[in-house]
Design a binder for these strands. Structure first.
Lengths: 340, 340
DNA sequence: TTTATCTACTACATCGTTTTCGTAGATTTT
DNA sequence: AAAATCTACGAAAACGATGTAGTAGATAAA
């Protein structure tokens, strides 16, 4: 069912029907209502491709993220989709699987006008952003893992503060040697959290040891954590920048008979719904993932609809929440127990 | 950059350029290579809307699911997207948020040709499927939460068997009164798992008690679970059909000072990565979510591309895996302890 | 009455590709 | 040499919706 058929049914011209459907002032009120009625009766729907071709806009946005099976990105998608649904937009999803080559390919694909705007979170491999600079005309919004130097809106959490407080929390509960685990030194979130970590060490007059900072981007993450916890002077606190690394830490601790929190305290960024039920319950920094999605989408739609142009340098920072649980509980006994 | 401009640059006709780009035999080999070179140089990309309009296909599929922030649907999205990326398809995502009205609206939206096919998992509210029957011409594939009576391909796990084995597992570990918790009696997964549950009771000559079967689709799920576990003759085993309900059960048990597994054993369908680290570690039935996504996408693309119609009744069943952990461990002492 | 202004509609070009149909010129077949 | 067949390209008609530029006919202003 298209305009032509509908027009024939109504003995009207195509233009009249088209205008009636979009409630143009050029069309008489009587005509409008008959057109509307007939359109509903015949279940007419605008052909999106014809419309997009003519209007040069797609009513579609792209979400480019590393992974969908993730306690952070899942709710972000929910947030984005909920705003898109309200606004009548469609959401295309593309996954980089943390692979920069895929990210580049996806961005290239998106240059042909298929979408009106892009929201993205960088892959952990993404070191340079040449592929993104080429998008000059395309509305673009970053969230969480942002490219700091680019002049586009960014929605993040207060990673520096969170990194600071997480470290501070470990120190206050008795940690002296705190390891920082993250996935890639190139990521904005790693850098900011790391700076917060170092600042907290500095404020507390704890010397910063380079070999307590580990970036695990290979497949043998577990081996590296195992090696870390087997060191003679192993850390008494682990600050994991992503949930996955905290879970691995738990597994390794069990394997090595290290007790959490007595031997090692663990804190991490996590949106896991089961953090409170872990053994021991895990102290987490929760990011407002759903709200990040909504906020990022809202800003993108403003850009797309050209309501305002001075969004370009805007940076929106939402607050994370530290929830203290047993994995970082202060322990009285200085029961130093090394792996045997 | 479009065909017209490209043709002018090359002093060729639009048709020639178009054909050259898609490697038509009508075009001379020399011409082809100059066209290709120029296209690359000027970064020409086919306009997707013009192409879709003309060819009447979109190279896009829709994924309609209840929720993205979910340990099952997350990996499913990964699976679908990976196949789509291989095949050069685009993936639109729509969330029903378990709301049938939204599901109906989304399906209606998708009738205008925006996508070449739909993959979906029903919302828990979805009782009738009139909105889906109207899609007669549109390739459609169900996964996990399927509409049994519809003649379209369905990809599921062996829910009946899993329900049977889960129940059997509880019985073998000493449970006498097993509650079955699920979200909606309308869902295929609920029905199949429930049948497996009843069959296991029957085989083990345990009487089936209607009031041990609870469908929690309201917001006060926790209250209902609390009430269940406060009953005089409360169940000694809980079989939760979805992860969320097991987590709530854990929370309620902690609240009521009920010990898992001594007082209540818990098993559930879950793809949580932290199941092994819970306190106690949670016995789960893991569904091969990523593979379900890949399989469903693969079948949908066959439908979309080959126009093969004998896929229509195909049902693909993948195996789930039961991983026994401490939450269902047999306990010797008949230490009956009621909440006070 | 003449002219200007509205009202309600239609014709048509356009968006960028794809594809069918043609055709000039070269080559092969009879 | 005439006829048939190829080769390599171009013209033009879709695909369906939108918006500009008209235009009858009615009403209002001069």
């Amino acid at each position: 069912m298209n305009l032509k058929q509908l027009a024939k049914e109504l003995n009207l011209s195509i233009s009249t029907v088209s205008k009636a459907l979009r409630d143009s002032h050029e069309i008489g009120i009587a005509t409008k209502s008959t057109v509307l009625a007939k359109a509903k009766e015949l279940n007419y729907q605008v052909n999106p491709f014809a419309s997009s071709l003519r209007k040069q806009k797609s009513k579609t946005i792209a979400v480019v993220i590393p992974d969908a099976a993730n306690d952070f990105f899942g709710p972000v998608i929910n947030g984005i989709e909920s705003v898109a649904q309200e606004k009548g937009y469609h959401v295309l999803i593309y996954l980089t699987h943390e692979d920069m080559k895929k990210e580049v390919a996806i961005i290239k694909l998106l240059q042909n006008g298929r979408v009106d705007g892009i929201m993205m979170s960088l892959s952990e491999q993404t070191s340079d952003t040449a592929h993104l600079e080429e998008l000059s005309e395309m509305p673009l919004v970053f969230f969480d893992r942002v490219a700091d130097h680019m002049d586009v809106p960014k929605i993040t959490t207060d990673d520096y503060n969170s990194g600071f407080h997480a470290t501070q929390h470990l120190i206050q509960n008795g940690c002296k040697r705190i390891a920082f685990l993250s996935i890639s030194p190139d990521l904005s979130i790693s850098r900011m959290r790391m700076r917060g970590y170092r600042e907290a060490l500095k404020v507390n007059k704890i010397e910063h040891e380079e070999n307590l900072v580990l970036y695990l981007n290979s497949e043998d993450e577990k081996t590296i954590i195992r090696r870390l916890l087997k060191r003679k002077n192993r850390p008494d606190g682990i600050f994991a920048s992503v949930e996955k690394l905290a879970i691995l830490t738990y597994e390794v601790c069990e394997e090595l008979n290290l007790r959490i929190p007595q031997d090692v305290k663990v804190i991490c960024f996590s949106n896991s719904k089961t953090a409170a039920l872990l053994n021991p319950s895990l102290t987490t920094i929760i990011q407002p993932a759903y709200e990040i999605g909504r906020e990022a989408a809202t800003i993108l739609f403003k850009l797309v609809e050209k309501k305002r142009h001075h969004f370009l340098q805007e940076r929106t920072v939402l607050n994370s929440t530290l929830i203290a649980r047993n994995s970082t509980k202060a322990t009285r006994a200085r029961n130093k127990k090394y792996s045997k």
